[in-house]
Simulated assay, not measured.
Amino acid sequence: MKLSQGVEWGLHCAMLLAQVPQGGLLRRDALADHFGLPEAYLSKHLQAMTRAGVLYANSGPKGGYRLARDAGSVTVLDVVEAIEGTAPPFVCQEIRQRGTGASSPEECRRTCMVSTVMNDADRAWRSSLRSVTIAGLVARLPGSVHTRNEETLPQLAH
């Protein structure tokens, strides 16, 4: 499975927003500058995260973004699904029932083994991502990053 770069961008932005002082907002351009990202492309991902309820957006001159919920309740899966959608990555086409090697209807009463394995893997992957929160990721940041963000974020937030 390949995820878009938007997932990485969204997760890092969510982690940074989790460190903004209470009640503060970060503008889109500040987020883009912080990570050296193209603002127009980042905007698309921030909007998707806002629509999904991961971020709160306020427009206008004093506008910006913040997490919509406490960082301890926003999961990595929330961000992934906001960016990539919730559709399963595998859709069984039941090819076992086609072509010259087609299985009989009796042989296909049970769910396809390939589909079962892929769906089990998807559930495990989602469960793993659901178990990690943005607060948990922030806690794993090196101390030097925390210190730098504590020094710079108050000037960027409004």
Rank of each mutant, 00 (worst) to 15 (best):
A87G: 03
L42A: 06
L17H: 01
R51Y: 12
L141E: 03
V91A: 10
V132P: 03
D29H: 02
T116P: 07
W9R: 03
A18L: 03
I134H: 05
V114G: 04
E150L: 09
G136R: 05
S127D: 13
G6D: 09
T116Q: 15
P61V: 06
R96E: 08
S4I: 13
A32L: 03
E151T: 11
A40F: 01
R148C: 14
R69M: 08
A139H: 01
T111R: 15
Y41F: 15
L141V: 03
L11K: 03
S59Q: 07
T50L: 04
H34E: 13
S128A: 15
T86V: 08
T116E: 15
A68H: 07
L31E: 08
Q22R: 11
V138L: 10
R28G: 10
C112N: 09
V80K: 05
W9G: 02
Q19Y: 03
A102Q: 05
R28L: 13
P142K: 13
V80R: 07
V91H: 10
S43I: 10
R69V: 04
A124I: 15
Q22M: 09
P142N: 14
C112G: 07
Q93E: 07
A52E: 08
T75H: 01
V80M: 01
C92N: 07
Q93C: 04
P61C: 11
M1N: 15
L16P: 00
G53M: 07
L16N: 02
G53K: 09
P88C: 10
D70G: 01
V145Q: 07
G53S: 04
A124R: 14
Q93V: 01
N58R: 08
Q5H: 11
Q155T: 13
V80F: 06
L55N: 11
E8R: 12
K44M: 09
A121T: 10
G10T: 00
Y56F: 09
A82T: 04
A71G: 07
L16C: 01
K2Y: 13
Q19S: 14
G60Y: 10
S104I: 00
R123H: 13
G99T: 05
G143V: 13
V20F: 02
F35E: 10
R66C: 09
S127R: 15
H12G: 11
L16T: 10
S115H: 04
P88H: 12
S127T: 14
A57Y: 01
V91E: 05
V54Y: 03
E150D: 12
W125Y: 12
S144R: 14
G6C: 00
L67T: 05
G23A: 08
V54C: 05
F35M: 13
T111I: 11
M49I: 04
Q155I: 11
W9C: 04
G64S: 07
A121L: 12
T133P: 07
P38W: 11
A14Y: 06
E107N: 04
G101N: 13
P21M: 10
D70F: 00
W9V: 05
R27K: 09
G101S: 07
H146W: 05
F90A: 05
G10V: 00
E39A: 11
R66M: 10
P89W: 13
V91F: 12
C112D: 11
A139V: 07
S128Y: 15
D122S: 14
A135N: 01
L55Y: 08
N119C: 11
W9E: 07
E94I: 03
M49Y: 06
N119F: 12
T100R: 02
V79D: 00
G60L: 04
A157F: 08
A48N: 06
